[in-house]
């Protein structure tokens, strides 16, 4: 689920999409420590009775789990912003603390919503004279559809 905030007026439209990180960094640390503590403690018991490979496998798995949690935390601050101001369309993508900004010419910008047979809307793309930028990676299929419906009167669009 995303946190969509925006304003709408005929001349100015902006929408910000950020993933809802329902687990705080402190919460992540707590969850991971509990899991790690339990796994490591019984692995040590196994080592004690002679089955040391358990520690190896448990360690490898905890590293993977830890990395996955870390990866999620790294991307917790990501967001995407779409601003339509008169004749300018600006897509700002904030990822891992860095900003990427794509400016499209408003008049030529078209909206492409790509849906699979069965109704899953996998991409929402803004396209203008050969330049293409994806928007809404953190959104559910239904939110993409909803946003596309909102944007269609403002931008031209089609779907595939």
């Amino acid at each position: 689920m995303v946190d969509i905030s925006g304003t709408t007026s005929p001349v100015h439209y902006s929408v910000t999409v950020r993933p809802n990180c329902s687990l705080s960094p402190a919460g992540t640390l707590r969850v991971f420590s509990v899991i790690a503590l339990i796994s490591l403690s019984f692995s040590l018991v196994f080592v004690f009775i002679g089955a040391w490979p358990v520690l190896f496998f448990a360690g490898a798995e905890l590293l993977t789990l830890g990395y996955c949690f870390y990866h999620v935390l790294l991307h917790a601050g990501d967001y995407e912003q779409l601003i339509i101001d008169d004749d300018k369309v600006v897509v700002q993508i904030h990822e891992l603390g860095r900003d990427r900004c794509v400016k499209l010419s408003g008049y030529w910008t078209r909206l492409v919503l790509d849906c699979m047979p069965g109704g899953y809307c996998r991409w929402l793309v803004l396209r203008s004279s050969g330049c293409e930028v994806e928007f809404g990676r953190h959104m559910t299929s239904d939110e993409r559809l909803k946003l596309a419906r909102q944007l269609r009167p403002i931008l031209g669009g089609f779907m595939t």
Partner: peptide, 12 residues
């Protein structure tokens, strides 16, 4: 998550 490493090491 807790027990799969145990199975993996048992078969290893």
């Amino acid at each position: 998550v807790a027990v799969m490493p145990v199975l993996a090491s048992a078969v290893t």
